[in-house]
Amino acid sequence: MIRIAVAVALVLFALPAAAQERRASHCIAVAEQAPGLHYLHRASAAGPERLWRAHEGTHAAGGTASHTEPLPENTVRLHFIAHASFLLRTHGGLTAVTDYTGFIGNTALIPDVVTMNHAHETHWTANPDPAIPHVLRGWGAAFGEGVDHHLDLGEMLVRNVSTDIRSGFGGADEPKGNSIFVFEVAGLCIGHLGHLHHVPTDEQFAALGRLDVVMAPVDGGYTLRLSDMVATLKRLRSSVVLPMHWFSGHSLGAFRAGMADEFAIVDQGAPYIDISLATLPDRPTVVFLQPAWLRDE
């Protein structure tokens, strides 16, 4: 027994520090590993009204410098830049941009993290700024290989769940070619569905775990059809849904109608919202943001 204990100790000692200290996801609870479960969310005292009233009048018309304003503790700012790109910013100043295309506006900001998906060129760039510390591609080095990200920055943990790219326009399908990225920060679990082409499997739902906030493509054509997207979001039952990747008012209207029976609907009238555990609405809510490029004052 002593020899076995010594051998185990030697193996652990030989492992890299990162392997020993890999932080577990707080968004995945043991109870949520069972396929088919609907995840439960703790209700808060804040209703949908508090979500948007707290920030009325804090954005400039036609643009914003929301990436420079100080944030309260345990708060995350989500700014809808364009198409499928969002800026996430923490109280400590960490920044991440989703589905990064190489341009986020007239700003000198260099994000700490960018994520990308390559189903279409409007979701990635082959030449990201070399000054960006962490560039996370949502696909693997080999076709169909997928990728496994687990980036721990202390204040923020970024991980991914791979899904398949399915071409409806004569191209080749690519297993594990898309990634749903999850950002764990300030006690929140924030998911970006990327260029989702199919309803996630039970295993993928389990791997995602709880998503308090989800950014969802609602075009209904290039990505998941609207009926399937609505069903996916109702299964996730996130506290806040942020529609993205839309091309017309028609798809937005159809999406709104499909969600209105179970979700409150809020037109934010601004490109961003601030979210914390304390201000999550007590009823699942769809929040429509107005996209705006980042701009330095």
Rank of each mutant, 00 (worst) to 15 (best):
M1F: 04
L10P: 00
F13C: 11
P16C: 11
A18E: 11
A24I: 14
A24P: 09
S25G: 09
H26L: 02
C27Q: 11
I28S: 01
A29K: 14
A29I: 01
V30I: 10
Q33R: 14
G36R: 05
H38C: 02
H38T: 10
H41E: 03
R42W: 00
R42Q: 10
A43N: 15
S44V: 11
A45P: 00
A46Q: 10
A46D: 10
R53L: 15
A54K: 15
A54M: 08
E56A: 07
E56L: 15
T58Q: 12
H59I: 07
H59W: 12
A60E: 13
A61P: 09
H67T: 00
H67R: 03
E69A: 14
P70L: 12
P70N: 06
L71T: 02
N74M: 14
V76F: 03
F80L: 13
I81K: 12
A82T: 13
A84R: 15
S85C: 12
F86Q: 10
F86H: 14
L87D: 10
L88E: 05
G92S: 08
L94G: 09
L94R: 08
A96P: 12
A96Q: 08
V97P: 09
D99E: 15
G102M: 08
I104L: 12
I104E: 04
I110F: 07
I110S: 08
T115L: 05
N117V: 13
A119Y: 11
H120G: 02
P128K: 04
D129K: 08
D129C: 05
P130T: 10
A131F: 08
I132A: 03
V135I: 11
G138P: 02
G140D: 13
G144F: 02
E145S: 11
G146M: 04
G146Q: 10
V147Y: 06
L157P: 00
R159E: 10
N160C: 15
R166P: 03
G168N: 14
G168A: 06
F169Y: 14
G171E: 11
A172G: 09
N178I: 15
I180R: 06
V182E: 05
F183K: 00
F183S: 03
G187S: 12
G187E: 09
L188R: 03
C189V: 01
I190H: 07
I190V: 15
G191H: 03
G191I: 06
L193P: 07
L208H: 07
L208D: 08
D212C: 01
V213T: 04
A216S: 11
V218P: 01
V218E: 01
V218Q: 11
T223N: 14
R225S: 02
L226S: 07
L226C: 04
D228Q: 13
M229K: 14
A231Y: 04
L233N: 09
R235V: 02
V241D: 05
M244C: 09
H245V: 13
W246L: 13
F247W: 05
S251Y: 02
A254N: 01
F255Y: 10
A257C: 00
G258I: 10
M259I: 08
M259Q: 13
A264I: 00
V266L: 15
Q268P: 03
Q268G: 02
G269D: 03
P271T: 01
D274Y: 03
I275K: 06
S276Q: 07
S276W: 13
L277K: 14
A278D: 11
D282H: 15
P284M: 00
T285P: 08
V286S: 05
F288E: 02
L289G: 08
L289R: 01
R295E: 15
E297M: 04
